[in-house]
């Protein structure tokens, strides 16, 4: 077990270096002089440009700049915004709770709707219930979150006036975005739960349990569900990325402040240092989440091995 963790940690290091290299190189890949972008609307002379370059460290050799970048990162310093000159870290931390709340709520929707739909479909395998549940799931998988978001607003905010259309704060503002974001994951989960349930239901011990006279419901709940949920948990980890994607569009549709919205406005604002910081932050957190999921998973399921 310890060896596994150690291996995973060692595996993470080159990826971390890669991420930092990639984000670091961003300022060198963009068209135009970063110094001029920093200056914003202030006209610059040669001298002032040179001054800003010095200030930003752009006059030093690239490897020194990189070392400096890493050193600053190690201290948790993500630099300052090229646009409003505020701290990038603060902006991210400010946006984070909104996205976190949304993602968690969506996760709840996904798990609830997805497992129920999947189990029902599997138990009633081959019936019209199964067929229609899977058709619904297919529609759900095919529905972009920004489209489902807009449709939800159209019906539940504008037509029925049940929920406010946009903004953050309070449960009533969380329902629609969480649904919009959660439903596509729910659809994916439903398909998955169904197929792994079917798999398990077909296996010997279930047949044995059945033949022993256990009620079908007991069989499903006690045996099949437990085993079917293992792959589901894995997928849940992978869904983090999917949810991050959805969070970007969902936050834009529902005008919720959050990391996604911050990313889009920063890109449109050519606020490269902000984009740099967000990308780094998101990638590293994703990496860590996966690490934790892997380790936790290995601890639970002995069949998992590291290859």
């Amino acid at each position: 077990m310890h060896r596994f963790i150690a291996q995973r940690l060692i595996h993470v290091i080159p990826v971390l270096i890669g991420i930092s290299l990639l984000t670091f190189s961003m300022l060198h890949l963009i068209p135009g002089d970063p110094a001029l972008i920093y200056a914003g609307d202030t006209p610059l002379g040669e001298e002032l440009t040179a001054q800003i370059r010095r200030l930003l460290g752009l006059d030093r050799p690239v490897w020194v700049q990189y070392a400096d970048y890493i050193w600053r990162l190690a201290r948790g310093d993500l630099g300052i915004s090229m646009r409003h000159r505020g701290s990038v870290r603060d902006s991210i931390l400010q946006a984070l709770p909104g996205t976190f709340q949304l993602t968690m709520a969506a996760m709840v929707v996904a798990v609830l709707v997805g497992t129920v739909l999947g189990i029902v479909a599997a138990v009633m395998h081959g019936s019209w219930v199964d067929t229609s549940a899977m058709a619904v799931a297919m529609v759900g998988v095919s529905m972009p979150t920004f489209y489902s978001g807009l449709l939800l607003i159209l019906f539940f905010s504008f037509r029925l006036a049940w929920f406010p259309a946009t903004g953050q704060g309070g449960m009533e503002r969380l329902v629609l975005p969480a649904l919009a974001l959660g439903l596509s994951s729910a659809a994916i989960l439903a398909r998955l739960v169904r197929s792994s349930m079917l798999e398990v239901l077909r296996q010997d011990y279930i047949t044995t349990a059945r033949s022993k006279g256990l009620a079908p419901r007991v069989v499903v709940l006690r045996h099949a569900l437990k085993n079917a949920l293992i792959p589901t948990v894995t997928i849940l980890g992978l869904q983090f990325g999917h949810l991050m994607t959805g969070a970007v569009t969902t936050e834009m549709v529902f005008s919720r402040p959050g990391l996604g919205r911050l990313t889009v406005t920063s890109i449109l604002n050519r606020d490269y240092t902000m984009v740099q910081g967000i990308v780094l932050f998101a990638a590293v957190s994703f990496l860590l989440v996966n690490l934790v999921v892997d380790v936790a998973y290995a601890a639970v399921d002995p069949r998992v091995r590291y290859d």
């Binding site: 595996h11 080159p14 990826v15 890669g18 991420i19 990639l22 961003m26 890949l29 963009i30 068209p31 983090f240 990325g241 999917h242 949810l243 991050m244 994607t245 959805g246 970007v248 990313t263 889009v264 920063s266 890109i267 490269y272 984009v275 990308v279 998101a282 990638a283 590293v284 994703f286 990496l287």
Partner: peptide
């Protein structure tokens, strides 16, 4: 290792990063 690196970017993030640079 390159693949691992690219996979470290959740979802749409890598595409956003590329768009941020290219426009």
């Amino acid at each position: 290792r390159m693949v691992d690196l690219m996979l470290a970017f959740p979802g749409i993030l890598l595409a956003l990063f590329i768009i941020a640079i290219l426009g």
